[in-house]
């Protein structure tokens, strides 16, 4: 098994995927791993589809960009169409249940679950879809420890939203089981 794990988190601008990428990388650092995070900029990042990419590794990361993601998340159809390409090969795909995957794409595993619905109805706020997604990713891959992920989230989210975010994370774990 390779010691480097590459993730591409995509969705619409404003869905908090930049924060999700930072939190995931910081969880990696809490686990004493190396991590880099990059994101799309400029017109590409305004509205429409945007992405945040994370590499987590046991050793120093040289080439810093994600090329063959081990996991790709897409919260919207537009993001899926743009960022889930054939370079995914044997990776894991995580999408909201409403997103359709091009049948030509080969993948190791597809996790298609009601991310948006869970955030909105079960947890209570659509804005935590990013944290629900992180729960799914951690449960499905163990790329970081649950303890580190929970800590990284609590270190970043605004005061007063800890409970909400913790619930979102746990709902994510449930969705991936």
């Amino acid at each position: 098994m390779t010691n480097q794990f590459e993730l591409r988190l995509s969705g619409a601008g404003g869905q908090g995927l930049l924060l999700a990428g930072i939190v995931l990388a910081e969880a990696g650092i809490l686990d004493d791993k190396f991590a880099t995070q990059t994101q799309s900029y400029g017109p590409e990042a305004r509205g429409g589809a945007s992405k945040s990419e994370v590499i987590i590794s046991d050793s120093e990361i040289d080439y810093p960009e994600v090329r063959t993601p081990n996991l790709t998340l897409a919260l919207t159809q537009e993001a899926a169409d743009k960022y889930i390409s054939k370079d995914i090969m044997n990776g894991i795909i995580v999408v909201d249940e409403r997103v359709k995957i091009n049948p030509a794409i080969k993948y190791e595993k597809l996790i298609s679950v009601p991310i948006m619905k869970t955030a909105k109805n079960k947890v209570g706020k659509a804005i935590v879809a990013n944290i629900v997604s992180l729960g799914i990713i951690v449960e499905a891959t163990n790329v970081v420890s649950k303890e580190a992920m929970e800590s990284a989230i609590l270190n970043r989210v605004p005061k007063g939203t800890e409970k909400l975010n913790k619930m979102a994370l746990e709902s994510g774990y449930e969705l991936a089981k």
Binding site: A25, E26, I29, L30, A35, E147, S151, N155
Partner: peptide
Amino acid sequence: MKMKMKSNVQFV
């Protein structure tokens, strides 16, 4: 137990 980055460590 909440884990924290050391005070001299940042992810920036």
